[in-house]
Every structure is written in structure tokens, then in C-alpha cells.
Amino acid sequence: MLQYIVKRFLMMIITLLIIVTLTFILMHSVPGSPFNEERGTNATIQANLEAHYHLDEPLYVQYFIYLKSIVTFDFGPSIKQPTSSVNDLLSRGFPISLELGLVSITVAIISGILLGIIAALRHNGMIDYIAMTIAVLGISIPNFILATQLIQTFAVYFKILPAATWSSPMHMILPTLALATGPMAIIARLTRSSMLEVLTQDYIKMAKAKGLSPVKIVFKHALKNALMPVVTILGTLLAGILTGTFVLEQIFAIPGMGKYFVESINTRDYPVIMGTTVFYSAFLILMLFLVDVVYGLLDPRIKLHTKEGES
């Protein structure tokens, strides 16, 4: 087990290094600089500013300065908001984004699985058709369109829910709905099809032949097996939720990390771009690792450490 974890961590660090390098290259290949459009900067001031932020150094020197900042986890001050460090921005914005993301993925997982189970058990019935119609809609409508529709309907027309910000549970409903619907639909469809497949397995017939109740059969024998494919796509869904927060935080004016991130790209605020990317990449990589651990826990055939012989 320990060996596996060490190996995984090494892989994670290499992955992160690649992401950091790519981001660095991409960032600097986009024309522009943080000071381009600043009014009243003459050449000297600009040169001074660039020197201050090491922007006058050769790229590879800048690259190593970034690497050092990552290792020490100190990304320095934001260029555009010199009073806050990148770490300040992260500690201010990330908890809000995390809350939005966690609430959404939880809602998506629970409702998606329930919807999938019900659809599978009422296979080809009315409920199945309704659930799957919702699912197809949920998958095909992008979250930003859904978000504007939700605002239009519930905030502007019916005036029953607030249109923006993240200040109370009521405020959370629309953003969560917008962000959770897509993943929920994907989970529901996957749960349904995998549940249907599992229900035809011999061990389900065996469980019936033992006289077990339908509830026991579904929840003890079928669900765990049916959820395996769902767990494998959880990583992808998490990544989707994560990028989704960037977009939805803009739409709903939620002061999360996504807002700072998008701003930083527009203004070429290099330290913020780098800091956020590294932080989010590390977060996502860690989540993917956790997903693998969960999968290993669900399926006894997968052992994270040693191979087990047949006997």
C-alpha cells in the first residue's frame, strides 16, 4: 500500500510539473503584458515595474523563479491588486468555490443515483421515460445557458429566488442547480444502464433464489456493482464541475476563485494565473487519486498494493 501511494505521489508531482510548464508556456505565448494598457506609464516606469516582477529576466529564469514559488507555496503578490498576495486571493476565493463545487457534486451524485435507480426499476415505464428525458435535456444544455434560463425564470419572472451572489442558502439554489444538472444527468443515465445490466446477472438471480426482498437485492447486491462505472467517471465529472465554477461564478457574481482567475487571465496577472492553475491542478489530481481509492474500496478484485493469487 505504502509503495503504491509513494508511486502515485511521484506520478502526481510529474503530472503537476507538466501542467505548470505548459501553463507557463501558454501564458507567455499569449501576447500582452500586465502593464500594456496602463495609462501614463512611460518606458522607464514600465521597465522598473517589469524589473520588480522579474519580467525582464530571460524566460527560463522566470520559469525557475515560478518553480521556486510553487515549491515554497508562495506565489508572491498579485500584480493587479498589489495589496493582496496570490495566497490571500486563494484563501478568500477558494472556500467559496469549494462550497459551490461540493454542494453541486453532492447534489448531482445523490439525485443522479436515485434517479438512475428509479428509472432502472421502472424500466420502460412512465417514470423511466420522464427521468431519461430530464437526463437528456440535462446533458445537452450547457450550464451557462441553464444558468441564465434559471435566473430569467426564478429570479426575474417569478421573483422567488435571488439572482446572484452567495450569501445565504437561498442564494445557493440557482447556482447549484445550474452546476449540478449536467453531472446529475450523466450519473443518472450511467446508473440506470449499469443497474439494468447488473440486474440481469446470475448473482442477482441467485439472490432472488435465496428469498431476499427486492430492497435487499437492489441495495445490497446490485447497487455496489452498478456504481462502479459511476465512480470511474467521477474524476471527469469533478473536472467538469471545477471548470463549471469558473463560468458560473461569473454569471452569478459569486466571489469565488473562478472570478479572480478569469480576471487574472484578462489582465495577464501572471502570478495569479500561475498560482490558481497550480492550486487547482493539485486539487484535481488529489481528487482523482481519492476516486481511485474509493474504487479500490468498492471492488475487492482491485487491490491497490499486492496481487492476490487464486486458490
Binding site: 446470475d202 448473482y203 441467485m206 439472490a207 445490497k220 447486491h221 455496489k224 456493482n225 471492488d299 475487492p300
Partner: peptide, 14 residues
């Protein structure tokens, strides 16, 4: 009842 294929008659996750 006992079924034909013992490889599939047991639940792999229990």
C-alpha cells in the same frame, strides 16, 4: 436452486 456457472453466481463485491 443452483445455477450452471459458479463464476457468475456469486456477487463479486461481497
Amino acid at each position: 436452486m443452483i445455477f450452471q456457472d459458479p463464476m457468475t453466481a456469486l456477487n463479486p463485491t461481497l
